[in-house]
């Protein structure tokens, strides 16, 4: 998988700093799963976070802080080994094509099945339990279909999980990441040879043009 489009470094650094909102953070995290280059960069920025922590001037702690921590450790002494995550019942997920792994970043999230939103177009709402307001969804668009033209009031982030689309600026394939700022007015078109599945997060409202497009926007809940 040749990845051509990466998150910009300021975004990777904000991710390493824990400063991204939930939706964008999960889209970036799913990019990292498929991109060793960005993973290494995030490791560098995390190392920078470590260096900054190291250099921070210490704050005074409560006098009993260490005693409290040791007491907490004693209280769970029986379980001193790290507790393996209990495997919970497999959450409901929309089907992905064979060979396309479900992004590990979305583990713990719930997702609806594929919902129809137009000819050849389906979407699945992803809910992050800790942050239900995060606007995160999967889009599955059929071969040759074009998404309704839209702009956004803020920032749209997309990670291509399968297939390929072209939005007039560039072509995006599996593993590619795209951040479209609010001023970009784009109309992604899916390649003729197969469908395309993307993970997307939108910060502001998606603004679709035209009546049908607005209806779809309403369906998607944006």
């Amino acid at each position: 998988m040749k990845i051509r489009h990466h998150p910009e470094d300021a975004l990777l650094l904000a991710h390493a700093a824990g400063q991204l909102p939930t939706g964008p953070a999960l889209v970036v995290a799913s990019h990292l799963e498929s991109c060793p280059r960005c993973r290494e960069r995030v490791r560098e920025y995390e190392a920078l976070g470590g260096a900054l922590l190291e250099a921070a001037s210490p704050a005074a702690l409560a006098p009993d802080a260490l005693a409290r921590a040791l007491a907490a450790i004693d209280a769970t002494a029986g379980a001193s080994a790290p507790l393996p995550q209990a495997a919970s019942a497999a959450p409901r997920r929309p089907a992905l094509p064979p060979g396309t792994p479900w992004p590990a970043a979305l583990d713990g999230c719930s997702a609806t099945g594929w919902r129809w939103m137009g000819p050849g177009m389906y979407w699945s709402r992803i809910t992050v339990p800790q942050d239900p307001a995060a606007k995160l969804f999967l889009l599955r668009i059929g071969a040759g279909k074009r998404l309704p033209t839209h702009t956004h009031s803020d920032l749209e982030m997309t990670q291509v999980l399968y297939g390929r689309f072209d939005d007039g600026r560039a072509s995006f394939g599996a593993g590619d990441f795209d951040a479209a700022a609010g001023d970009i007015h784009h109309q992604p078109v899916v390649a003729e040879d197969g469908m395309c599945i993307c993970l997307a997060s939108v910060d502001g409202r998606l603004l679709f043009d035209g009546v049908i497009a607005r209806t779809i926007g309403g369906l998607v809940g944006m």
């Binding site: 700093a17 824990g18 939930t22 953070a25 995290a29 990292l32 799963e33 583990d107």
Partner: peptide
């Protein structure tokens, strides 16, 4: 960093997020 983000999310104050524990 991760505990802070989790804490913010739990309190509905979501600013940041991180999911690279799995990674």
């Amino acid at each position: 960093r991760n505990l802070r983000v989790d804490h913010l999310r739990r309190k509905g104050l979501a600013i940041g997020a991180d999911a690279d524990e799995g990674e």
